[in-house]
Design a binder for these strands. Sequence first.
DNA 1: CTTGTCTATGCAACGAGTTGCATAGAAGGA
DNA 2: TCCTTCTATGCAACTCGTTGCATAGACAAG
Lengths: 165, 165
Amino acid sequence: MALEHAILVSLLEKPGSGYELARRFERSIGYFWTATHQQIYRVLKRMESDGWIDVREVPQQARPDKKEYSVAALGRTALAEWLHEPIEPESVRHDLAVKIRGAAFDDPAALIREVERHHQIHSDRLAHYLAGSGVTSPAPRRLPRPTRARNSSTSYCAAASPTSA
Amino acid sequence: MALEHAILVSLLEKPGSGYELARRFERSIGYFWTATHQQIYRVLKRMESDGWIDVREVPQQARPDKKEYSVAALGRTALAEWLHEPIEPESVRHDLAVKIRGAAFDDPAALIREVERHHQIHSDRLAHYLAGSGVTSPAPRRLPRPTRARNSSTSYCAAASPTSA
DNA sequence: CTTGTCTATGCAACGAGTTGCATAGAAGGA
DNA sequence: TCCTTCTATGCAACTCGTTGCATAGACAAG
């Protein structure tokens, strides 16, 4: 329900075409919201017909013409309203956590490698964020070696005691 | 694509009905994957017709009968396969981050309260996790007061310099 | 000359997830 | 008695998001 709003933010930063937005959603705003070009084109259509954004045909040489979108008054209002709503239920979908919990019924060792891989990915991304933001890096942290996680991991996570392990 | 697998994990921990699963998805496994009862019932149907799970009609007194599901051999195989696949693109959808970025075009002060509210919610949840897991709490951390975030926040976040602020 | 890549837009079909509504018996409180 | 809550299951309609495919001109590499 928020792709519209992510697009509004991006168009306020700089007007652009569907194609350009799709590029931005590969980085920049895409770090916070993912979307494919299909979705973007479809939502742009709707936003335009709702009067949230304006279109301008821009002829180009040496490449196809494009439609440049910019935020209309109605769009700004809609964005402002959304910004003032509290964010709610935050629906969680965390594959890795489900797998970790499922590991009790399979081979935990294989998952540990996967967890470490993800830790690496997230560390790298954090470094990337910080490098770009100009904020000085906090003291680097590393994952503490597992202490007593091996047997305690099922204690609250599992609704009931697993029958295998 | 992973609700099936979350259900398999939950049913391995303890067989149960659609209704009971829906309860579990309100806590326990629900911390990692959200699902409504509608979704659960629909997926259970499919899993059953695919032979991933077995059903057993359980007559009850003083309440409606229920169908108790348990994991079949095919289900265990499917889960094992899934556990060994690497997790990929991790599609990100982070309302709060989009709002923070949009705040440059609106009232940043209002959002600060929202951010603090969320920090509180996450701290509480972390405490809850740790309390349940038996892991000793790490040194409590608090958000550093904003240092120079006010003007640097747009540097890499924004694809282009915002024209208002 | 063909193949592949980049810009630029879009349709059609599907699958995942949400919302609203419906049923139905038992129990408990106003 | 009526109303609400709890257990238990489900249909129908919708929106959101993904995947596959299509078009089409310009350009560069082989």
